[in-house]
């Protein structure tokens, strides 16, 4: 234990290829039922550095409710999806409200997205923002901290109509998604 840093964490290891029965048995892809007022669908494909879909990934989402509250009564805000043979994941949820950020600056509505897979020794973490929130997105402290416009663009989902938002994740190569890590 080094002073000021607390305990050293247990290192991460890959999820490997054989997690499905243990982690996805309960199919937690529906954060709300499809008939829920304001239900939206979030889906996309995970791609590797060769542009091929990743069929053995697990995607987790963690988000605030429609009023911008994390962990509120009746809405867990958490979901998990495997990817199918086409690398596709999918969730049914509600669009989150804006949540407070540092110094009271509101953060634009967003969903925290983590991807685990064989070949990922640690999960990658990104954020899904919404295309119809231009004003909020322009003021969001995280989006504005991503200096490269191309990289920033990878964080905005696409409106696919009918309450569906598309969000592909590219792990590596051209158009790689912006991934975050947490500062000390």
């Amino acid at each position: 234990m080094s002073p000021g840093r607390g305990l050293e964490p247990t290192p991460s290891q890959t999820i490997g290829p054989f997690f499905h029965d243990a982690l996805l048995e309960r199919d937690p892809t529906g954060l709300v039922p499809p008939e829920h007022p304001g239900a939206v669908r979030i889906s996309g494909v995970i791609y590797d550095g060769a542009g091929d879909p990743v069929p053995d990934a697990m995607v987790e989402v963690w988000q605030a409710d429609a009023a911008g509250r994390y962990g509120s009564e009746g809405f867990s805000g958490f979901g998990r999806s495997g990817t199918d043979e086409h690398g596709r994941f999918s969730f049914t949820t509600v669009k989150p409200g804006p949540v407070p950020g540092p110094d009271g600056t509101p953060q634009a509505p967003h969903v925290n997205v983590s991807v685990f897979a064989r070949g990922l020794l640690r999960q990658v973490t990104t954020r899904l923002y919404f295309p119809d929130e231009e004003e909020a997105n322009a003021a969001d402290p995280v989006l504005t901290s991503v200096e490269d416009a191309g990289l920033r663009e990878t964080l905005i989902s696409h409106d696919e109509g009918g309450g569906s938002y598309g969000f592909d994740v590219r792990l590596q190569g051209d158009g790689q998604t912006a991934f975050f890590e947490f500062g000390e």
């Binding site: 890590e181 947490f182 500062g183």
Partner: peptide, 16 residues
């Protein structure tokens, strides 16, 4: 080799 991101990670502020 094909799954590791190569762009530098973006460090979120401590408050977040």
């Amino acid at each position: 080799r094909l799954r590791a991101p190569k762009e530098p990670l973006i460090i979120l502020p401590k408050a977040l």
